[in-house]
Write a protein that binds this DNA or RNA. Structure first.
Lengths: 141, 141
DNA sequence: CAGAAAGTTTAGCTAGTGCTAAACTTTTGC
DNA sequence: GCAAAAGTTTAGCACTAGCTAAACTTTCTG
């Protein structure tokens, strides 16, 4: 019965991680997008974020307030949004993972549209070990 | 500018899908586990589900009521939980995807523990195209 | 430079997913 | 066959993440 108990613990751990991941995922997505907008235009405005994320302005405002409390972004009232050091860390981490996963999927023969969408979903759920294996695979192909 | 607009739409679509996926993910996880418990013990009791999912009994009860309204599970008061045809469909779909992703990760050289956990996270985010590519890769290796 | 347009914030709503504590039912063990 | 243990349900709370509508501020334009 040892195996079953172990696998049950593993499942519960994975599930717990899944739940915790959902909010982290959102933070990653927002920070990645804000970083992109800053690179493109020098600043990230609420409307642009809302438009690209497919979400209302109000939702962005509320989320930005939460993230500001968590120290991920900085913002003056009625002004654009910027990332803190922590925010940049999340953004860079996300970009790195995203790039590896997307390249990996392309190398596997996935079409570029699907690779982009799947990479977005997968990037938040790959461990470092898996990421390294993907990078290794890419290096060999 | 066409490329940028297209890529922005794609991002928004991916993000929208991510959000919609979160509740579907939960349904998949519950149904998969219920299926497992039924296979193992002939029935799925609330306590067992709660224990394996690392969640309180009350949460399971509430979720089961919701799923019952959605036609995924069937339950008499104070009795065990069973899957409807739709519930079984979700469970089987999840198991199939999980198996392919896990095998794929193992083939990539990931350790079995990590493969199990990562597969749990990834299985909900792979398109059919990617799943097929993984199966193809497995067949060739 | 005043009024319109664009953008932001706030208020108030919904739904999902989690919790604890208390009430209730079923099962078990003496 | 009754009392204790085990399991289930309900009530009530919190937080996240979304929405619309309305109020407010900033920017643009004639």
């Amino acid at each position: 019965m040892k195996r079953k108990i172990a696998s049950s613990k593993l499942r519960s751990a994975a599930f717990t991680r899944t739940r915790a991941d959902h909010s982290a995922e959102l933070a990653h997505d927002y920070c990645e997008l804000i970083a992109e907008l800053i690179d493109e235009k020098g600043e990230a405005r609420g409307t642009d974020i809302a438009l690209r994320l497919g979400v209302s302005n109000a939702t962005v405002a509320k989320t930005m307030k939460r993230f500001s409390d968590q120290g991920l972004v900085e913002q003056e009232p009625y002004r654009a949004i910027f990332l803190t050091a922590d925010g940049w860390k999340l953004a860079e981490d996300g970009r790195r993972k995203h790039a590896i996963v997307e390249q990996f999927l392309l190398a596997l023969g996935i079409s570029s549209k699907v690779a982009q969408v799947d990479a977005e979903g997968i990037e938040h759920h790959v461990s470092d070990e898996t990421l390294k294996a993907m990078a290794r695979f890419l290096a060999r192909n």
